[in-house]
């Protein structure tokens, strides 16, 4: 693919899980920051190979769940005890016991929404335009190939050294995509 004036990223293809893993370690050790590994399935151990931190999705789950539980309890208290109390079967107007099942379900409901939207937010998805997807070679990431992409705006990026690093790590079909 011809190089253009506004290159977005350099893409290198790898054939096996072990190759991409070794290459990822080398790119990490070279000190790149704006780079990524693209695989058809999550490769076990790749987070360490890339030097990623533990995911923060759990915080969104936690706050979603807390919101759900407090919403459930306060909604039931407000509706059945405060706004319009009606005695049914001599039971108390409010008790955390009978309010529990509904609050429990709402905990799970909002925790799940928190998880989904937290994951999407952290991944900056949905992303309707991504220059990487313009490369036909790259489209095999969802089939059976592994890719490393290094963005051209990475501070460590150099048009010759970076390509050499990827070649030395075993990358093939190294090419640019334009923005």
């Amino acid at each position: 693919m011809p190089e253009t004036n506004t290159p977005y990223a350099l893409i290198a293809e790898f054939e096996t899980a072990a190759d991409i893993m070794n290459a990822a370690v080398r790119v990490r050790d070279a000190g790149f920051r704006r780079w990524d590994v693209h695989t058809p399935y999550p490769v076990h151990g790749m987070d360490d190979a890339m030097g990623l931190q533990n995911s923060k999705v759990g915080w969104f789950t936690f706050f979603g769940g807390m919101t759900g539980f407090t919403t459930g309890m306060s909604m039931i208290w407000w509706m059945n005890k405060w706004d319009y109390p009606v005695v049914v079967g001599g039971k108390p107007l409010f008790s955390p016991m009978f309010a529990f099942p509904v609050s429990y379900e709402l905990t799970i409901l909002l925790a799940s929404f928190g998880t989904l939207f937290g994951m999407l937010f952290l991944n900056r998805l949905p992303k309707l335009y991504n220059p990487l997807l313009k490369s036909r070679t790259f489209a095999r990431f969802s089939n059976d190939r592994f890719f490393i992409t290094i963005q051209c705006d990475d501070p460590k990026y150099s048009s010759t050294e970076t390509r050499k690093l990827l070649e030395d790590s075993g990358g093939r079909q190294i090419h640019f995509v334009e923005d």
Binding site: V43, N123, L133
Partner: peptide, 12 residues
């Protein structure tokens, strides 16, 4: 949603 199999995405 624009999924690219990115490992940063896979992690989350």
């Amino acid at each position: 949603l624009g999924w690219t199999g990115s490992n940063r995405h896979w992690s989350n």
